[in-house]
Write a protein that binds this DNA or RNA. Sequence first.
DNA 1: CTTGTTTTATTCGAGCTCTGAATAAATATG
DNA 2: CATATTTATTCAGAGCTCGAATAAAACAAG
Lengths: 377, 377
Amino acid sequence: MARVEIGQQLGMSPATVSDLTASLLDDGVLVTEEAGDATPGLIRGRPKVRLFFAETLGSVIGVWTGFNRIELRLVDSAGRNRASRHIERPLRTLGAEELMDVLAQSITAFARETGAPDVKAVGLACQGYVDTKDGIVAWSPVLGARDLPLASGLSERLGLPVLIENDASAMAFAIAQRDPALRTGRTACLMVGDGVGMGFLINGELYRGARFGGSEFGHVRLRRGGPQCRCGGRGCIEAFLADYALHRDAQLIDHRPAPTALIPGEDAMDSIVAQARAGDPALQNLFREAGEVLGDAVGILIQTLEPDHIVICGPGTRAIDLLRPSFEAALESQTIPELRALTTIHVVESSMDLLTEGVVMQALRELDLDLARLKAA
Amino acid sequence: MARVEIGQQLGMSPATVSDLTASLLDDGVLVTEEAGDATPGLIRGRPKVRLFFAETLGSVIGVWTGFNRIELRLVDSAGRNRASRHIERPLRTLGAEELMDVLAQSITAFARETGAPDVKAVGLACQGYVDTKDGIVAWSPVLGARDLPLASGLSERLGLPVLIENDASAMAFAIAQRDPALRTGRTACLMVGDGVGMGFLINGELYRGARFGGSEFGHVRLRRGGPQCRCGGRGCIEAFLADYALHRDAQLIDHRPAPTALIPGEDAMDSIVAQARAGDPALQNLFREAGEVLGDAVGILIQTLEPDHIVICGPGTRAIDLLRPSFEAALESQTIPELRALTTIHVVESSMDLLTEGVVMQALRELDLDLARLKAA
DNA sequence: CTTGTTTTATTCGAGCTCTGAATAAATATG
DNA sequence: CATATTTATTCAGAGCTCGAATAAAACAAG
C-alpha cells in the first residue's frame, strides 16, 4: 500500500514506483492517506504514506446468480463495500432473453435504490463454463442455452461494460486476495455449495482452459452409476456434495416424495446438518459418503496438479465436522504420502458476499485500462 | 529460423532480432545458413537467411532411466543426433549411491565410445516426482530412496552440469517442440509405457507443482480395491495400463505363476497384443478394461483442466486399436459433450528416442546461460 | 531545543532495450 | 535493365528502470 511496499511486491525500485504513481496521483486515480491516519509511530524514520484508489472514480456492481437467487453488491473504486442485497428469484426456468432481462432489471433497480449514479462496470459470477474473454457462457448446468453471450447481452441492456466469470473462479480470486500466501504458487479452491466448482490459481492468476474458462471439476464422475447430477450425468462430485444433492438424498431417506423446491434454503440445510449432528445414522451416512467423495476429489487434485494449497470453501463447509473423518481417510488412501505432504489444505468458511467481492475485483482488474481512459475524459 | 520469423514468434521487431543475433553471430554461438542451402526461389524478394546454432559449442547427453534399462543419446549443439545406445541393466535393486555410480559409469563409457570430448551437460529423465529446480527426486515408484539429490550426485561424479526431469514431462516437451500447435494453449501429454505419467504444458512451458515437479497423474486411484500398483497403492491408472501391469495380468489369466522378470521386454508385450488381436477373449477383456481406465483418465483431465490438446503417447500406444472402443465409450460417459468438444485428442506413437531428445532440449534451455558463459571463456 | 538517526520519497542523469523510418541488399518479374 | 518485393541493417529517439544523491518526516538522545 505504501510506495516502498508496492516496490518490493512488484520488484521495482522506489524511484520507479514514485514515477508511476505520480501521474496517477495527478490524474486523481490514487489518493494519499490523510496525515492523521498513519499508524502511530512505533517505528522511527519518515512514516510511510499509504496510497489508496480514489473513491470518486465510480463504483462497480458485483452479481452472483445462483439457482434461484441473485446476490448484488455495490463497491466503490476504493474497494469499499457500499451496499449489498439479495433477491430470491428462480432463474432456472427462464429462457435466455428473459434471464438477461431479469438480471438487467435487478441490477438497474439495485443501482437506483442505492443511489449510485456513478456505476462504471458490472461483474457477474455464474455457474458453468464461462469464456471470460469473450463474455460467453459456453455451458452451464442451470441454463438450457449453450454459448449464451451473456456479457454482451447485459452490456447492451445496461450500457455498461460487463465481465462474467465462473463463480468458483471468482471465489478463488477473492480468497487469494485476502491471503498473500495463496497468491504464490498454485492454489486450487474447491467451492461447495449450490454446486461444486473449482477455481485454480497459478501465482495469483486464474488458470484458463481451452475456451478461456475455468474448470468443471465438480462434474468429474467419480462413481459409476452414482446419483443423478444436474448436468445430466451420474456420480459427479457435485451429485454427492452440493446442497441440492444432500437435501434430495436426505428426503429420499425418509421415503418422502422428491422435494418440489429444487434448491433448499439455508434453513433446510441447517436442519439436515443439525439432525446428523444429533445422531441420525442415515444422515450421518450421507455425510460420510460425501466426505469420502470430497477426499477422493482432493486426492485427484493433489496427484494431478501438486498444488501448494487446496482451499475448501463455500456454504458446504458448514458440515465440515461431519465430512472430516471420511474425508481424511479417503484422502489418505488416495494419495502418495510424500506428495500429500507438499499440499496444505485450508478450510475457509466463506460467504457469497466474498464471491461478489471477488468478481468486482476482477472486473476492476480487467477494466482498469478503461478506468484510466474514463478519468482522462 | 530466419530472423523475420524469430521476430514474429517472439513479438519483436526485425531490428531487435538483428541486434541480438549480431553479438551471438560474432561469438560463434549462431551460424548463418550456407548460400546454397536456401529453399529454391519460389518467392520473390531477398531470400531469408536462416540461423542455426553452431555445432561446435559442445554436445549434451540425454539419458532415460527405465525400470531395467538405460537409454543414452548424444546431441550436438546444433540439435543433431550424434549417437544413441541403450543398456539393459536392472536399476531397481540398486541403492542410491550404487545407482548414481552405475549411471555415471554408463554415461562416461558412452561419451568415451562415441568419442565426444566436448560434452557440456547431461539431461536425465526418470520416473517419479522430480524437483527439477533443485535436482532432487522427491519420490519415485522405482526407487526406495526419498529426496535423492540425483543431479548433484551425478554432477559431482561427472564434473558436468546435470538437469533431471520427470520422464513424461520430458516427453511432453519433446512432442510439443515438434508440433507448434501443441505449444499454444494447454497440452496434457499422457505417456503410457513402463508406467503412466503426465506432462502438462501451458503455452509450451512445463507446468510445475508445489516442489517444482510435474504430475503424478498415473497414480490417481480410479478403482477402489483395484489391482496392485508399484507405488504401493491399489487401482492406480498405472496399475491397469503400464506394461508391467498388462503383462502381469496376462500371466495371471493363464494361471501361470507371477512373472519373475518384473518388466516385460518389447517382444513379450508384442506377443500379448498379438494374441489379443488374434481373438483371445481374456486378453481382450484386459485391454477393454485398460481402455476404460484410459477413457476415465482423459475424462478427468478434460473436466479438470480443459486442455486444448491431450496427447496419448509412449510404447503403450502399440495397442491403441484394442483400447479404443472402451476408451471412447468411457470418455463419452465421463465428460460433458460441450467441454469434450473443446479438447483435441492426439495419439502419437513416440519412441523413447524422442524422450531423450526432449530432456536434452530442456537441458540446453536451462543451461543456455552457461553455454554463453562457456563461449566467453 | 538542537542534533543525530532512521526510514521514506523524490529528483536526476545514465544505461538499457526496443522500435520506426530510412537504407541497403538480394532476388524475381517483365 | 528497371521495378517490385521481401529481408536485413543502421541509426536516432522513445520509454523504462535503476543507482546515487538529496530532501523530507518522524523519533531518540542529550
